[in-house]
Nucleic acid binder design. Structure first.
Lengths: 341, 341
DNA sequence: TCCAAACTTTGAATCGTTTCATTGTTACGA
DNA sequence: TCGTAACAATGAAACGATTCAAAGTTTGGA
């Protein structure tokens, strides 16, 4: 009930030296079969569990990686976290997870905590610009990899997703399925992700001389915001024949307002595509086409890049940019036999 | 770049004894103003950060609490986690989060890890029945509080939500708004939560002599499962006038199939209520009434119960059961003027 | 000026592991 | 039987923070 057994207790109980117990745990080959068995029995009988603090203290480093995300509730990050945990487990490390909730002071607290824990390194999806803080961290021997943010390769490694490419993919798909009067629905373009997706879409539209792209500003990135944009469109008339929304929530909102008219059909009259491929996309009234971000690859690669930084004294930083993937569902099925599938 | 500064380095740099540096950090009142300033300057200049491993080793315990949930992606748990983190922060502890993903071996790995870390205690939403494991843990000085599971109070403390009461609330609300031919849609009743919610609903229905409750089995707890139950109902005819779904996803699926008929109206023809009050409930085509679980209270109370266990040598365990809360939205607005609001 | 009390500072001992130079043991060929 | 190589086991030292008894310093009253 009180103090748990130490390696010394095990050594006494098995009548061997402490070094031997340590060897059984860390280098079983160095120990004779007979001794090993005796020690293992003692471990079992005493319920001995390694004290990680002592181990770390001696080793000077932990087997732990800090990961700070903006919002664990966001499926994007949830998936990244899971992949990172699995990848870390493969190399014998554990992930300490921190949720900053877009809050700079929570973020800072987690950095402090992780630094006290002497994590091997840090993966972070930063709230704002914290390069000075990260520079300091690196000086103190805590390498960092940026997640979901493109970093200056001369200073940091990073993993991110090419939102411009994603926007291009989405718009190109609408064009390929025969749509020409496109609309982009997205929150404030001050958000980089939104701006990049729009830019990619514009690039695609420019490739078709007869295609147009209308930009509709939404008030946020929610279902409700999407619905009000949709309602506005329905009232206004002069509808586009293809709509690309900056995320799936917006798209689901637009879908609600369009289907509520009971006259507009998706995808026959209007095609609709979102972004993120959230769980709900597949189970929408009309299953929603979307752009899927390679979250597993992000998490895995972040861990790998960090491992490179940890291992080499003077690592070359790498900014790995992933290309997202088009997921076609019913909401963008071709409108007419004449166009491509 | 290499080894970070230790308390000894700080002591040398400030020309004081290590004990003094420690006092500056832990008992500032014991140190004279002059010395304190000198030490703090040295700390700053060297970029000293406490080594938590050494601290823990000496203290014999960490300032850390382990929390293992079944699925961090699930909004229910996400919210519990956040509340637990905040409550832990208030008492100066940090939460180590583990996601078992309903997987017993991942769960076991996390327990091992947390035990090596010498966490103060463990909050766990267990995959199966792991009371033997938990008994062992307690023997080794790691108290445990069960989360989202009712525990035998003689053995463990626990925090959970009364699903029977939630089911009662939902059905009672349908009855109060004038519905009499009710249906319950829920996955396999082998799931305790589902069974309890159904039981509560039945209890409410028994209170009204002229009310009936039909039980419709769903194939899982997803939007698609809800949709197929809904479709079945529409084809079959003889519709209920109030439907209670075991969770919001099912309810959204049912809503989809009903609204697709373009003839059935919610709530006029059929009222619909779900369970969990997920983010999507409010932004459904018809905003969905639901039962909200007090997740913040769960997380906070779990931490508090754990603190009790940690502090007292022989604590009295407590099983705290919370009552969920009815959230009324448009999907259950009263059908006729004659009935109550 | 002296003394006692109050306040500061000191530094060795401790926590539980891992490391590694040293010592002890065994096996085997000469 | 002896010498040596290979193999096992030993246990002191180290990691970095905290604790606490002891030593040192200051203060103020007599």
């Amino acid at each position: 009930m009180n103090r748990s057994a130490s390696i010394k207790d095990v050594a006494n109980h098995a009548s061997v030296a402490v070094g031997t117990v340590s060897n059984v745990l860390n280098y079983p080959d160095r120990v004779s079969q007979r001794t090993k068995e005796r020690v293992l029995r003692a471990i079992d009988e005493l319920g001995f569990v390694r004290n990680d603090a002592a181990r770390q203290l001696r080793a000077g480093q932990s087997r732990t990686i800090g990961l700070i995300v903006l919002d664990v509730g966001n499926p994007f990050f949830t998936s990244v976290v899971r992949a990172a945990e699995d990848a870390a487990a493969l190399q014998g490390s554990a992930v300490l997870l921190g949720d900053s909730g877009h809050n700079a002071s929570r973020e800072s607290n987690y950095i402090d905590l992780f630094q006290e824990q002497r994590v091997q390194g840090l993966l972070i999806s930063p709230v704002g610009d914290i390069t000075e803080r990260l520079d300091l961290l690196r000086e103190r021997g805590v390498p960092t990899v940026l997640v979901d943010r493109l970093a200056d390769e001369s200073k940091y490694s990073s993993v991110s997703v090419d939102d411009d490419a994603g926007g291009y993919l989405a718009a190109r798909h609408l064009l390929d399925t025969g749509r020409r009067r496109l609309a982009f629905v997205g929150g404030p373009t001050s958000i980089r992700q939104v701006a990049d997706r729009l830019q990619g879409a514009q690039r695609a539209v420019k490739e078709e001389p007869d295609a147009t792209l209308e930009v509709l500003d939404s008030d946020g990135q929610t279902v409700l915001a999407g619905r009000s944009v949709g309602n506005m469109l329905v009232e206004r008339g002069n509808l586009p024949d293809g709509i690309f929304c900056a995320n799936d929530l917006l798209a689901l909102g637009v879908m609600q307002s369009l289907t509520m008219t009971h006259t507009l059909r998706i995808p026959e009259d209007i095609a609709l595509i979102g972004y993120d491929d959230i769980d709900f996309a597949v189970s929408a009234v009309v299953p929603l086409s979307s752009i899927r971000q390679p979250t597993e690859a992000l998490g895995r690669t972040a861990i790998e890049l960090l491992a490179e930084e940890v291992e080499s004294e003077n690592p070359r930083h790498r900014a790995v940019v992933f290309t997202p993937e088009l997921v076609v569902r019913q909401s963008t099925a071709p409108a007419k036999e004449s166009s491509a599938g």
